[in-house]
Protein backbone atom coordinates (compact mmCIF):
# COMPACT_ATOMS: atom_id res chain seq x y z
CA UNK A 1 0.00 0.00 0.00
CA UNK A 2 2.17 2.80 -1.29
CA UNK A 3 0.33 5.97 -0.47
CA UNK A 4 1.78 9.30 -1.37
CA UNK A 5 1.44 11.70 1.57
CA UNK A 6 0.73 14.56 -0.83
CA UNK A 7 -2.18 12.82 -2.54
CA UNK A 8 -4.63 13.94 0.12
CA UNK A 9 -4.30 17.55 -1.04
CA UNK A 10 -5.16 16.86 -4.65
CA UNK A 11 -7.99 18.96 -6.05
CA UNK A 12 -10.48 16.98 -8.09
CA UNK A 13 -13.42 18.30 -10.07
CA UNK A 14 -16.83 17.13 -9.01
CA UNK A 15 -18.87 19.24 -11.39
CA UNK A 16 -17.27 20.58 -14.55
CA UNK A 17 -18.29 24.14 -15.26
CA UNK A 18 -16.74 26.44 -17.86
CA UNK A 19 -17.85 30.06 -18.18
CA UNK A 20 -16.11 31.64 -21.13
CA UNK A 21 -12.44 30.90 -20.69
CA UNK A 22 -12.75 30.65 -16.91
CA UNK A 23 -12.88 27.42 -14.98
CA UNK A 24 -15.66 27.60 -12.40
CA UNK A 25 -15.71 23.88 -11.72
CA UNK A 26 -17.11 22.71 -8.43
CA UNK A 27 -14.20 20.92 -6.75
CA UNK A 28 -13.80 18.80 -3.65
CA UNK A 29 -12.29 21.90 -2.02
CA UNK A 30 -15.42 23.92 -2.82
CA UNK A 31 -17.59 21.07 -1.58
CA UNK A 32 -15.91 21.11 1.81
CA UNK A 33 -16.22 24.89 2.02
CA UNK A 34 -19.94 24.56 1.42
CA UNK A 35 -20.17 21.75 3.98
CA UNK A 36 -18.20 23.83 6.50
CA UNK A 37 -20.41 26.88 6.10
CA UNK A 38 -23.59 24.81 6.12
CA UNK A 39 -22.55 22.90 9.25
CA UNK A 40 -21.55 26.04 11.11
CA UNK A 41 -24.69 27.93 10.14
CA UNK A 42 -26.97 24.99 10.87
CA UNK A 43 -25.33 24.39 14.24
CA UNK A 44 -25.59 28.00 15.33
CA UNK A 45 -29.16 28.47 14.06
CA UNK A 46 -30.50 25.21 15.46
CA UNK A 47 -28.85 25.47 18.86
CA UNK A 48 -29.94 29.04 19.45
CA UNK A 49 -33.43 28.75 17.98
CA UNK A 50 -34.80 27.58 21.36
CA UNK A 51 -33.68 30.88 22.92
CA UNK A 52 -33.77 29.30 26.33
CA UNK A 53 -33.18 31.71 29.17
CA UNK A 54 -31.32 28.87 30.80
CA UNK A 55 -29.30 27.46 27.90
CA UNK A 56 -29.05 23.76 27.24
CA UNK A 57 -25.75 22.07 26.53
CA UNK A 58 -25.63 22.89 22.83
CA UNK A 59 -26.93 26.40 23.27
CA UNK A 60 -24.23 26.95 25.89
CA UNK A 61 -21.66 25.86 23.33
CA UNK A 62 -22.91 28.45 20.84
CA UNK A 63 -22.95 31.11 23.52
CA UNK A 64 -19.44 30.21 24.67
CA UNK A 65 -18.26 30.51 21.07
CA UNK A 66 -19.88 33.94 20.80
CA UNK A 67 -18.51 35.13 24.12
CA UNK A 68 -15.05 33.82 23.30
CA UNK A 69 -14.78 35.73 20.02
CA UNK A 70 -16.51 38.82 21.42
CA UNK A 71 -14.12 39.02 24.38
CA UNK A 72 -11.13 38.44 22.13
CA UNK A 73 -12.18 41.29 19.85
CA UNK A 74 -13.12 43.61 22.70
CA UNK A 75 -9.80 43.02 24.46
CA UNK A 76 -7.73 43.61 21.34
CA UNK A 77 -9.61 46.40 19.58
CA UNK A 78 -11.88 47.93 22.21
CA UNK A 79 -15.64 48.44 22.03
CA UNK A 80 -15.28 50.20 18.70
CA UNK A 81 -13.89 47.03 17.20
CA UNK A 82 -17.19 45.24 17.77
CA UNK A 83 -18.29 46.61 14.39
CA UNK A 84 -16.11 43.92 12.92
CA UNK A 85 -17.52 41.13 15.06
CA UNK A 86 -19.34 39.45 12.14
CA UNK A 87 -16.09 39.34 10.14
CA UNK A 88 -13.96 37.97 12.96
CA UNK A 89 -16.60 35.49 14.09
CA UNK A 90 -17.11 34.20 10.54
CA UNK A 91 -13.37 33.85 9.98
CA UNK A 92 -12.82 32.08 13.29
CA UNK A 93 -15.66 29.60 12.93
CA UNK A 94 -14.91 28.99 9.25
CA UNK A 95 -11.25 28.17 9.89
CA UNK A 96 -11.94 26.26 13.09
CA UNK A 97 -14.61 24.04 11.56
CA UNK A 98 -12.56 23.55 8.39
CA UNK A 99 -9.51 22.49 10.42
CA UNK A 100 -11.56 20.14 12.56
CA UNK A 101 -13.24 18.64 9.49
CA UNK A 102 -9.77 18.00 8.16
CA UNK A 103 -9.18 15.66 11.10
CA UNK A 104 -11.73 13.17 9.75
CA UNK A 105 -10.10 10.43 7.68
CA UNK A 106 -10.70 10.86 3.93
CA UNK A 107 -11.91 14.43 4.38
CA UNK A 108 -10.35 17.25 2.43
CA UNK A 109 -8.63 20.04 4.35
CA UNK A 110 -8.97 23.16 2.26
CA UNK A 111 -7.09 25.32 4.79
CA UNK A 112 -3.97 23.42 3.68
CA UNK A 113 -4.13 25.27 0.36
CA UNK A 114 -2.37 28.62 0.35
CA UNK A 115 -4.80 30.07 -2.18
CA UNK A 116 -7.59 29.73 0.37
CA UNK A 117 -5.66 31.08 3.35
CA UNK A 118 -4.17 33.90 1.26
CA UNK A 119 -7.65 34.93 0.11
CA UNK A 120 -8.75 35.06 3.76
CA UNK A 121 -5.66 37.02 4.80
CA UNK A 122 -6.02 39.55 1.99
CA UNK A 123 -9.67 39.97 2.94
CA UNK A 124 -8.52 40.91 6.44
CA UNK A 125 -5.77 43.27 5.31
CA UNK A 126 -8.04 44.80 2.66
CA UNK A 127 -10.62 45.51 5.33
CA UNK A 128 -7.96 47.06 7.57
CA UNK A 129 -6.61 49.31 4.80
CA UNK A 130 -10.02 50.43 3.51
CA UNK A 131 -11.47 51.04 6.97
CA UNK A 132 -8.24 52.66 8.19
CA UNK A 133 -8.26 55.25 5.42
CA UNK A 134 -12.04 55.71 5.65
CA UNK A 135 -11.90 56.32 9.40
CA UNK A 136 -8.63 58.24 9.80
CA UNK A 137 -8.07 59.64 6.33
CA UNK A 138 -4.42 60.35 5.68
CA UNK A 139 -3.77 59.98 9.42
CA UNK A 140 -3.79 56.23 8.89
CA UNK A 141 -0.24 56.62 7.59
CA UNK A 142 0.80 57.45 11.17
CA UNK A 143 0.82 53.67 11.55
CA UNK A 144 4.11 53.68 9.68
CA UNK A 145 5.74 56.38 11.82
CA UNK A 146 6.70 55.14 15.28
CA UNK A 147 6.98 57.67 18.09
CA UNK A 148 10.29 59.32 18.86
CA UNK A 149 12.15 58.53 15.67
CA UNK A 150 14.67 61.18 14.50
CA UNK A 151 13.66 62.88 11.24
CA UNK A 152 16.83 61.71 9.51
CA UNK A 153 15.92 58.06 10.08
CA UNK A 154 12.27 58.49 9.20
CA UNK A 155 12.46 57.39 5.54
CA UNK A 156 14.25 54.16 6.38
CA UNK A 157 12.13 53.36 9.42
CA UNK A 158 8.98 54.22 7.49
CA UNK A 159 9.99 51.94 4.64
CA UNK A 160 10.74 49.11 7.07
CA UNK A 161 7.37 49.63 8.73
CA UNK A 162 5.65 49.52 5.34
CA UNK A 163 7.39 46.24 4.47
CA UNK A 164 6.50 44.92 7.91
CA UNK A 165 2.87 45.85 7.28
CA UNK A 166 2.86 44.26 3.83
CA UNK A 167 4.32 41.06 5.26
CA UNK A 168 1.31 40.62 7.54
CA UNK A 169 -1.04 38.98 5.06
CA UNK A 170 1.81 36.73 3.93
CA UNK A 171 2.71 35.56 7.42
CA UNK A 172 -0.97 35.22 8.28
CA UNK A 173 -1.70 32.97 5.32
CA UNK A 174 1.59 31.07 5.35
CA UNK A 175 1.24 30.20 9.02
CA UNK A 176 -2.21 28.66 8.68
CA UNK A 177 -1.49 26.85 5.43
CA UNK A 178 1.93 25.55 6.49
CA UNK A 179 0.63 24.30 9.83
CA UNK A 180 -2.19 22.34 8.28
CA UNK A 181 -0.08 21.04 5.41
CA UNK A 182 2.85 19.97 7.58
CA UNK A 183 0.59 18.42 10.21
CA UNK A 184 -1.34 16.32 7.73
CA UNK A 185 1.78 15.19 5.89
CA UNK A 186 3.46 14.21 9.17
CA UNK A 187 0.43 12.21 10.23
CA UNK A 188 0.30 10.44 6.90
CA UNK A 189 4.01 9.64 6.88
CA UNK A 190 3.98 8.18 10.39
CA UNK A 191 0.84 6.21 9.64
CA UNK A 192 2.56 4.94 6.49
CA UNK A 193 5.49 3.70 8.61
CA UNK A 194 3.08 1.52 10.56
CA UNK A 195 1.82 -0.31 7.48
CA UNK A 196 5.20 -0.69 5.81
CA UNK A 197 6.93 -1.85 9.01
CA UNK A 198 4.27 -4.35 9.95
CA UNK A 199 4.62 -6.10 6.60
CA UNK A 200 8.17 -7.09 7.58
CA UNK A 201 7.18 -9.94 9.87
CA UNK A 202 7.16 -10.28 13.65
CA UNK A 203 9.99 -7.85 14.45
CA UNK A 204 8.42 -5.32 12.11
CA UNK A 205 5.11 -5.54 13.92
CA UNK A 206 6.86 -4.99 17.25
CA UNK A 207 8.74 -2.05 15.74
CA UNK A 208 5.55 -0.63 14.28
CA UNK A 209 4.29 0.07 17.80
CA UNK A 210 6.56 3.11 17.95
CA UNK A 211 5.20 4.99 14.90
CA UNK A 212 1.70 3.92 15.92
CA UNK A 213 2.16 5.58 19.30
CA UNK A 214 3.53 8.61 17.50
CA UNK A 215 0.51 8.74 15.21
CA UNK A 216 -1.83 8.70 18.17
CA UNK A 217 0.12 11.47 19.87
CA UNK A 218 0.29 13.49 16.67
CA UNK A 219 -3.46 13.20 16.21
CA UNK A 220 -3.93 14.81 19.58
CA UNK A 221 -1.43 17.51 18.67
CA UNK A 222 -3.22 18.12 15.38
CA UNK A 223 -6.50 18.77 17.18
CA UNK A 224 -4.67 21.31 19.30
CA UNK A 225 -3.11 22.88 16.20
CA UNK A 226 -6.50 22.99 14.45
CA UNK A 227 -7.93 25.07 17.27
CA UNK A 228 -4.78 27.08 17.87
CA UNK A 229 -4.38 28.18 14.27
CA UNK A 230 -7.99 29.32 14.02
CA UNK A 231 -7.44 31.20 17.27
CA UNK A 232 -4.16 32.76 16.11
CA UNK A 233 -5.74 33.84 12.82
CA UNK A 234 -8.63 35.45 14.66
CA UNK A 235 -6.54 37.18 17.33
CA UNK A 236 -4.17 38.62 14.73
CA UNK A 237 -7.18 39.83 12.74
CA UNK A 238 -8.35 41.60 15.90
CA UNK A 239 -4.94 43.21 16.38
CA UNK A 240 -4.80 44.42 12.78
CA UNK A 241 -8.31 45.84 13.08
CA UNK A 242 -7.11 47.63 16.20
CA UNK A 243 -4.41 49.23 14.04
CA UNK A 244 -7.06 50.43 11.61
CA UNK A 245 -9.10 52.01 14.41
CA UNK A 246 -6.18 53.48 16.39
CA UNK A 247 -3.31 53.96 13.95
CA UNK A 248 -0.94 55.77 16.33
CA UNK A 249 1.04 53.12 18.17
Amino acid sequence: MASNPIDQFKISKILDLQVGSFDFSFTNSALFMVVTVATTAAFLILTTSGRGLIPGKLQSLSEILYEFVANMLRDAAGAEGMKFFPLVFSLFTFILVANLFGMFPYFFTFTSHIVVTAALAFLVIGTVIVYGFYKNGIGFLKLFVPDGVPVALLPIVGLIEVISFLSRPISLSVRLFANMLAGHITLKVFAGFVTSLSSLGFLGIVGAALPLAFTVALTGLEFLVAFLQAYVFAILTCMYINDAIHPSH
Binding site: I163, S167, R168, I170, S171, V174, A178
Partner: peptide, 12 residues
Protein backbone atom coordinates in the same frame (compact mmCIF):
# COMPACT_ATOMS: atom_id res chain seq x y z
CA UNK B 1 4.62 32.19 14.55
CA UNK B 2 8.14 33.61 14.71
CA UNK B 3 9.45 31.76 11.68
CA UNK B 4 6.50 32.72 9.50
CA UNK B 5 6.84 36.36 10.56
CA UNK B 6 10.51 36.30 9.64
CA UNK B 7 10.08 34.52 6.32
CA UNK B 8 7.22 36.81 5.33
CA UNK B 9 9.29 39.94 5.99
CA UNK B 10 12.19 38.77 3.84
CA UNK B 11 9.83 37.54 1.10
CA UNK B 12 7.96 40.82 0.88
Amino acid sequence: RLSSEFVAGVLV
